[in-house]
Amino acid sequence: MDDTAQHGAEPYRLDDQVGYLLRLASQRHAAIFQSQTIEGLTATQFAALVRLSEHGKCSQNQLGRLAAMDVATIKGVVDRLRQKGLTLAEPDPGDKRRMLISLSPQGAALVARMKDAGARITADTLAPLSPTEQRSFLRLLAKLS
Rank of each mutant, 00 (worst) to 15 (best):
S26I: 08
K84P: 03
D15W: 14
F46W: 11
L88M: 08
I38H: 05
L81I: 03
G8R: 02
A68P: 04
R51Q: 06
H29Q: 12
D95A: 06
R97V: 06
L100R: 00
D15A: 15
L49I: 02
K143P: 06
E39W: 07
T37G: 02
L63T: 01
Q17R: 11
D2K: 06
Q45C: 02
D70F: 05
S26D: 13
G40M: 04
I38A: 09
D16W: 13
T73I: 07
I121D: 01
L140D: 10
G94W: 04
G8E: 01
Q17L: 10
Q106H: 11
D79R: 13
T4V: 09
S102E: 00
Y12M: 12
E133M: 11
D95K: 04
V71Q: 07
L141D: 04
T132Q: 15
E39L: 06
Q17T: 10
E54P: 05
A68D: 09
K75A: 12
V77S: 01
A109S: 14
K96Q: 11
S136P: 08
R28F: 12
Q27I: 12
L141S: 08
G19D: 07
R82G: 05
K57M: 06
C58I: 03
L81D: 00
D16T: 13
R80A: 12
D92T: 08
D124W: 14
L81E: 00
L14C: 15
A123E: 14
T132L: 15
G40W: 05
K96C: 07
M114C: 11
V71F: 07
P11K: 07
R135E: 15
L81V: 02
I101D: 00
T44E: 15
A31M: 09
V50G: 03
P105Q: 08
T132S: 15
S35R: 11
M1Q: 08
A25I: 10
V78D: 00
L126K: 00
A47Y: 03
D124Y: 14
E133K: 09
I74M: 01
Q45F: 00
I32K: 02
V111I: 06
L103C: 03
T73P: 02
G76A: 05
L21A: 09
R80F: 05
Q83H: 13
D124E: 15
L63K: 01
R97T: 08
S104C: 04
P91T: 13
A127N: 07
Y12W: 12
L14Y: 14
P105M: 08
T4F: 06
K57V: 06
E90K: 08
E10C: 08
Q17C: 11
